[in-house]
Design a protein around this nucleic acid. Structure first.
Lengths: 213, 213
DNA sequence: TAGATTGTTAATCGATTAACAATC
DNA sequence: TAGATTGTTAATCGATTAACAATC
């Protein structure tokens, strides 16, 4: 890619939401949309929308607006959805199993190829058509199957050592549901989903709005 | 509470992480910590830490730093963790079941009291010691049991109508795992957990770092 | 062409960082 | 008291919004 200006976190956070609205519009048969109309729909501003899209090169046309189909696929491409991603799940507890069974990821090109657990009692059990494998097979599986993303659904105490094993095995990205910060080397991506933190956010809002009454 | 300056979203997002680090320090028997030492630990800045804490009134002491125990409980209080929160889960699929079974929420005062599903085949099944209830019982259950938070783990198509029912029933906050934006009246809090968006974030990073190589 | 709407520059706003006086 | 470290104000940085010339 060309020497793009650096894209801020805030912009990247908005991309999946753009994609969702554009997908809905496309499904409704809408062919084009102006930044203004999209801003009304998404409760954002036309200015921000144009700024955001222009960071990636400008997909619109003066006097016309944006072609929904084209914009949708461009944003999908920016988000890396044009490529297949190969995942494993580490931790076959309730959450690991729930994620394995969520079919929508597959539709977006995120393919689950294996699920692992340290508990021998789970070994051999089948989750979403995958046999649960023991941790001993982890490194070999990652290298042999060209896995790029590992999903971590294990207790926080195990998270750091397991992440180190994964990084050494050649994983490129970690989707981390464990309640811990993972110290990974530069170039390895970590996306945290801290559910407890998210829930605290709600209770903060409840507490502070109650105080205002 | 007094006329506090308005707290930005960015600050609130950092509070649960402060709480986590302070809890760990407390468990390690650390009694006090300076903003500088905490910043080194958390890879943030001392300045930001002091700014953040001072928004809520300043919990430190010059020349000493912050008392870990005291700071921990103050932040817990700010986050509303000193109160019990009463929750129901709507949608008893894999994700709903996984959340119901996650014991750590309960430790923080988030108590699950009921789980609902529109699928009659699930009715009567037991999830985390709760009988799955039919949607017909939803409104009555919310009012009778003084529920404040509803967890939405249902398909996106059902999310908006169900959220309206919940709001009418008197719910105060929605923890939304459905892939839709919920149009709720002012005063009702929505915290979105859009897992697909989070995963796209990872694939964006993978795609853009691959482009740089 | 005239009207619409983008792409882009400039102005504003807010959040982070730096600095330092207050004070334990 | 002297040293340490906060609380808080000021400076900087970055992100959002406004404005408008370019152009379809």
């Amino acid at each position: 890619m060309q020497d793009e200006p650096k894209i801020s976190q805030a912009v990247i956070d908005r991309l999946p939401r753009y994609l969702r609205y554009l997908g809905d519009l496309r499904d409704q048969g809408v062919e084009r949309i102006s930044s203004r109309d999209l801003s009304l729909l998404m409760h954002s501003t036309a200015s921000q929308i144009r700024q955001d899209f222009n960071l990636f090169g400008g997909f619109g046309q003066q006097g016309y607006g944006y072609n929904v189909d084209h914009l949708y696929s461009e944003i999908g491409r920016i988000l890396g959805l044009d490529k297949e991603h190969r995942l494993i799940i580490v931790g076959a507890g309730h959450l690991g199993q729930a994620l394995a069974n969520y079919a929508n990821f597959e539709k977006r090109g995120f393919v689950f190829l294996g699920i692992f657990d340290r508990d021998p009692a789970l070994s051999g059990k089948t989750v979403a058509d995958m046999k649960v494998r023991p941790m001993e097979e982890l490194v070999g599986f990652v290298t042999e199957n060209d896995i790029d993303i590992a999903v971590l659904t294990i207790p926080k105490t195990a998270a750091v050592p397991v992440s180190e094993i994964l990084v050494n095995a050649g994983i490129k990205a970690i989707w981390n549901f464990a309640h811990a910060d993972l110290p990974v080397p530069p170039g390895i991506m970590v996306e945290n989903v801290h559910l407890t933190d998210s829930l605290m956010h709600l209770s903060y809002s409840l507490a502070s709005s109650a105080g205002k009454e």
